[in-house]
């Protein structure tokens, strides 16, 4: 009750929100009813949810639209799968290759770049493998493999795991052997396991910063935000599930959410969100960028692929 009243006041105060809500109401047919009391199913990743950013954004969205957001935090692979199965209205993930496949297969529509941060290689402060001196992502993992130093991998098809596999593919060493351990858990769990066993791991900066008070782990290789290699960039994308494929999804609500998240207000919320005094995510939806609407690396003259 309380949040609905606030939503009403908020909508009254801002013409934009009222106009959008009005559009949604009038374009809904009678069987759909109004959006008030509806619920938006968001499939997302542990790296965004565990930092608390989504709670902040979703609370504002609920104030504005009177709609509850039900976030389901999984790995990127699992989040995309649940969207393919029609169990989500909108997905927010970070593995461009998997996002492109999702879009190409027709399950997603209206993808937008949302925000970015970067990955960092973290490990014990005494740094037995000498990662600190490498300066490159591939060289860092090669150093760990050469030293047979324990490396903890997510191993769960998440965006972080996809990135890690991409780096291994470019590196000259192969992951494997007793020093290479897969947790199959979320980022927080994996960081904790790495901390307990004085191991290295690849982590997104957001989760690492939001939890660093609990750890002895240190950042040994920075990502591009702190001048590190571009290979460690971590962009997040948001897309609506195609209502042509799953008629149970709430497409209009999904688009309202994407609109709010990529609006100046939503982007400002991202930029102002901090943990332990540090910014975790950087807005990326403000400047129009053609590349967000096409598969990664697509060129007009490349014949469509």
């Amino acid at each position: 009750m309380e949040y609905r009243r606030r939503a009403f006041l908020g909508a009254g105060a801002t013409g934009i929100a009222a106009a959008v809500a009005g559009c949604l109401n009038s374009s809904n047919d009678a069987s759909e009813g109004s959006i008030a009391g509806a619920e938006l199913a968001l499939a997302t990743t542990t790296s965004t949810y565990d930092t608390g950013l989504l709670d902040e954004i979703n609370a504002k969205f609920q104030d504005r639209f009177g709609v509850q957001v039900a976030p389901n935090a999984q790995g990127t692979g699992q989040a995309i799968q649940s969207a393919r199965d029609g169990h989500a209205d909108v997905i927010l993930v970070h593995a461009r290759s998997q996002e492109d496949e999702f879009m190409r297969d027709g399950y997603g529509v209206n993808r937008r770049d949302l925000m970015f941060n970067d990955f960092v290689v973290v490990g014990p402060s005494d740094d037995p493998a000498g990662v600190d001196d490498t300066g490159q992502a591939t060289a860092a993992l090669e150093a760990i493999a050469d030293a047979q130093a324990t490396f903890v991998s997510r191993g769960d098809d998440s965006g972080t795991h996809t990135k890690e596999m991409g780096i291994w593919a470019e590196a000259s060493s192969e992951p494997g052997g007793e020093w290479y351990q897969e947790t199959g858990d979320g980022m927080g769990d994996t960081l904790m396991i790495a901390d307990e066993s004085s191991a290295y791991t690849l982590a997104d900066r957001g989760t690492f910063l939001s939890m660093r008070d609990n750890f002895d782990l240190e950042i040994l290789l920075q990502g591009p935000i702190e001048g590190g290699p571009e290979l460690l960039a971590n962009p997040y994308g948001i897309m609506a599930v195609n209502p042509e494929i799953h008629d149970n999804v709430n497409y209009q609500l999904a688009m309202a959410y994407i609109g709010f998240f990529t609006s100046p207000e939503g982007q400002a919320l991202i930029a102002n969100y901090t943990a332990n005094g540090q910014q975790l995510f950087f807005p990326e939806a403000e400047d129009p960028d053609f590349q967000q609407y096409v598969p990664e690396g697509w060129q007009p003259d490349s014949g469509g692929e």
């Binding site: 902040e56 979703n58 509850q68």
Partner: peptide, 12 residues
């Protein structure tokens, strides 16, 4: 169940 809670801390 999916371990879902809303932004205001209400559990679903």
């Amino acid at each position: 169940g999916g371990n879902i809670a809303y932004a205001d801390g209400t559990s679903k």
